[in-house]
Amino acid sequence: MAVDWADVYRRTYTDLVRFLHRLVWDADRAQDLAQEAFARALGQTPDNPRAWLFRVASNLAHDDARSAIRRKKHLVLIKGETETQQAVPDPQDLLEQQERVEAVRRSLARLSDRDRETILLWNAGLNYHDIAAATGLSASAVGTTLARARRRLVEAYDALEKHHVAR
């Protein structure tokens, strides 16, 4: 059955960008990859378009990360905020925000690929059924995976915080 990709785009684009942003940590790249995922989707007729898109986007992000490592490209941490703010950014606020984002990035990096992807998919708004379709997990395993991912994320973040305070 044909897929109304324009409708899927309207309902999914923002979620997809949010998901990609925490994989590539670059606002422009996240948008670019989201558009690329949709461009590749046109003409396709997957059973679960939303899950299919996130799977393609995830693959694109992993390819992009490998390319970025080869190029030794630096990652953008606060560019999105600085570009969109109309007021002059407060250096203190920027510094603290940047530290928080960096801590989250490092915490997520300590998760396994499967755990990280699952928690980010949930955070992007997918339900368990879609997460299972996007990751290949069984629906009954999604809850267990999310429980483990949440625990490891919080533990990693707490460990970084303790290290930070101890400095």
Binding site: Y9, R10, Y13, T14, V17, R18, H21, R22, A27, A30, Q31, Q35, G80, E81, T84, R100, V101, A103, V104, R105, S107, I119, N123, A149, R150, R151, L153, V154, Y157
Partner: peptide
């Protein structure tokens, strides 16, 4: 707690092109 951690890195949302 996990939700709060992730919220700290919430990207700026923009209208889709």
């Amino acid at each position: 707690e996990a939700t709060a951690v992730l919220r700290m890195s919430e990207p700026t949302t923009q209208d889709p092109p």
